[in-house]
């Protein structure tokens, strides 16, 4: 069950505050990294919502992220619609796609669920890739940034745009935490833990899974709109299955099913990528090795491990299972 523990609150506040502070010291490039980290925080949170808490390992979150980016880009660059309208429209599009995928896949579980989400994600990717009207593989440029001058903010300024991204990341966390604390969120965990029993208790499980996926889709699309605004450009590369895989890697490295962990994972990922890339061209190999090690050695992820240690110091009772183990067990019992 999700609990907004003090450890979680302190970590997420420190993380976001640290990012905001960093924008003051960092140059333009550093601020760009912060913006990237901020939207990856949102994407990772959205994925953790369904994967960590709902047991639905999605390989189409890259595509939903891309849908958010493209809807925003198309509306602002091709139809000259105000970003203030394009942003919510993109979020709604992500939610609708999420609801659709969630509803259609809700019968499947385990590897079949993963494969079905992969199929839907790739369908979107290929559609965009082949569609000249959407710029095909060249992508679309001329994306506008949101106008917040009525709040006295200049989004053309990279520092202020970074703050804006950080605030949205914070909001995304609050929304996700509120969902998970609610009766709905607890029920979602129940489904992850034992879907069959939830059904036997009278829960229309498929509807709940679809709604969870819709909420997650909305957040993933929000992340996409920030990415589109940052570079004012979108391309199919941001929505392929490797992007979905990367999002999953971030979630795992940070700690699946901890909500804060994936946020930490996103920031670590961006900065490590930056640092490691300075030292070696082979960043992917490092990620791969770390990923394998995390999965082989206990599955908890960076934050997950720390949280586990803190919880155990306080309450040396039960050998709490990491949610990855729980999810795997559930998948196996369904296989």
């Amino acid at each position: 069950m999700f609990q907004q523990t003090r450890t979680k609150t302190i970590t997420i506040v420190l993380l976001l505050a640290g990012m905001a502070l960093y924008t003051g010291f960092a140059g333009f490039y550093g601020r760009e990294l912060i913006i990237e980290a901020a939207y990856l925080v949102i994407l990772a949170i959205s994925l953790d919502l369904v994967a960590g808490y709902g047991g639905m390992i999605s390989l189409c979150h890259g595509a939903i992220f891309g849908i958010g980016a493209y809807v925003f880009a198309v509306l602002t660059s091709m139809y000259d619609i105000s970003p203030l309208i394009a942003l919510p429209a993109a979020i709604v599009a992500g939610a609708i796609f999420g609801l659709f995928v969630g509803a259609v896949t809700s019968k499947t579980s385990g590897i079949f669920f993963i494969m079905t989400t992969l199929a839907f994600g790739q369908m979107v990717y290929v559609y965009v890739f082949e569609n000249r009207a959407l710029g095909g593989d060249d992508g679309l440029s001329g994306v506008e940034r949101i106008d917040l001058s009525w709040l006295g903010l200049d989004m053309g300024n990279s520092m202020q745009f970074a703050w804006f991204s950080i605030v949205l990341a914070g909001l995304a966390y609050v929304v996700a935490a509120a969902v998970l604390r609610s009766g709905f969120g607890r029920t979602l965990v129940g489904i992850r833990s034992n879907e069959g029993r939830m059904r036997a208790l009278g829960l229309p499980v498929r509807r709940y899974k679809a709604v969870a996926f819709a909420i997650s889709g909305a957040l993933a699309a929000l992340a996409g709109t920030i990415a589109a605004q940052q570079t004012m450009f979108v391309s199919p590369q941001m929505m392929g299955w490797m992007m979905s895989g990367e999002a999953l890697v971030i979630v795992i490295l940070g700690g699946l099913g901890t909500l804060v962990g994936p946020a930490v994972g996103a920031v670590l990922f961006v900065f490590l990528q930056h640092e490691v890339s300075e030292l070696t061209r082979y960043w992917h190999m490092i990620v791969g090795i770390v990923l394998i090690l995390v999965v082989v050695l206990g599955n908890r992820g960076a934050y997950g491990q720390i949280e586990h240690m803190i919880m155990h110091r306080r309450r040396p009772v039960a050998p709490a299972k990491s949610s990855l183990e729980a999810a795997s067990e559930q998948e196996e019992s369904h296989a």
Partner: peptide, 28 residues
């Protein structure tokens, strides 16, 4: 056929929430 990774309280809460409709509510 239980929710093995959750506490007994959470197990019972899931059953009760499902039956009473609290499962779909935003409240804790």
């Amino acid at each position: 056929n239980l929710f093995n990774d959750l506490t007994i309280r959470d197990n019972l809460a899931l059953a009760i929430a499902t039956a009473t409709g609290a499962a779909s509510r935003m409240g804790d």
